[in-house]
């Protein structure tokens, strides 16, 4: 195998030392976020992911149709999860349509 262990000095990160099945897809992000000693690799990945999530969430929120907002403020955070989910669905629909158009343009 070509599997390599990271440097010993980096083994303190909970993303690196936790073996077995205590980690999973559901709790991993929270565990990394609460870790005091993130290794360089996990720090970089986590920060990059967080920036991406923030940007994507920003585009979802600002893509909202203004006319339904009584305050007239598009940038406002949605009040509840259902609201955000609805916006997210609309956003994804638009994205899919956009991708389709791009494909057609290329051909």
């Amino acid at each position: 195998t070509t599997y390599k262990d990271p440097k010993i000095s980096e083994l303190r990160c909970s993303g690196c030392i936790t073996t077995g099945l205590s980690l999973n897809s559901r709790n991993f992000c929270k565990i990394l976020q609460s870790c005091q000693h993130l290794c360089d690799q996990h720090k970089v990945i986590l920060q990059t992911e967080m920036r991406y999530k923030r940007n994507l969430k920003g585009s979802i929120i600002s893509s909202k149709d203004c006319s339904t907002d009584s305050a007239g403020n598009c940038e406002e955070m949605p009040k509840n999860i259902a609201d955000l989910q609805a916006k997210h669905d609309t956003f994804m629909e638009k994205q899919t349509k956009k991708e389709k158009c791009n494909l057609e343009d290329e051909s």
């Binding site: 599997y3 690196c16 077995g20 991993f28 990945i45 992911e49």
Partner: peptide, 19 residues
């Protein structure tokens, strides 16, 4: 027993080059 799942985190494709 020694393989940490955390080493196999798969970030979105559009971030991989940057990372």
């Amino acid at each position: 027993i020694t393989v940490p799942l955390g080493h196999f985190l798969l970030p979105p494709a559009c971030l991989q080059e940057e990372i």
